[in-house]
Amino acid sequence: MNATTWSEFRQGIGYQGLLLGVTVTMAATLLVVADRVTREPIAQRHAEDMNASLAQVIPPALHDNDLLANTVTLNDANGTPVQIYRALAGDRVTAVAFQVTGKGYAGDIDVILGLAADGKVLGARVLAHKETPGLGDKIEVAKGDWILAFDGRSLGDPPPARWAVKKDGGDFDQFSGATITPRAVVRALKGGLEFFATNRAVLTASPGNRQN
């Protein structure tokens, strides 16, 4: 092929199409291969992450199962599906954990809530939020121990009317200058407790006896 025809060929639409086609095919092949290779490790890393946050709200001593293996999905009062992680000791459900979401000042606040089988709070931890740094972020356990105040509480302690921040006549502190954030967390937790109370029979039923 001499120089002229090569340069003519390069100008043609066929070459352009071929070039794009080859590039995209190569890129796609690479991505498929990379996805195949990394899918397993990535899933494993995410499982480890989830386990780490679950371990914060369900003490390891309470269960002998893989928390991620025995999940149930139920619809909450609004019809949104909630995935529930169950801690089993032998055949008995000792604790459950699930995610609740509150409407904060700047967006959703995701909280993971761990409850013992008797409905007492084992622990609550904020997973993700967009609250104002230095003001609303004291809900993080790294920035303050406010969230620890819920440990050991249940729907009857304090009574439902006092499951609120102090400004609303409840039992829980708000932060000076920020009421919306703690209010959202308290409401979300209360919602979670009510959800548990409603579905308690299903949630604490021994998985061996479950039909489905």
Partner: peptide, 29 residues
């Protein structure tokens, strides 16, 4: 060729970034 260089570069860069993203996620979580 100059006519198709932009799409080609974009595909190259986007592929590269995705590969880095996947790799880090899997092996340097």
């Amino acid at each position: 060729t100059p006519e198709v260089r932009i799409p080609v570069y974009i595909v190259v860069i986007a592929t590269l970034v995705t590969l880095v993203d996947l790799g880090l996620n899997a092996y340097a979580h």
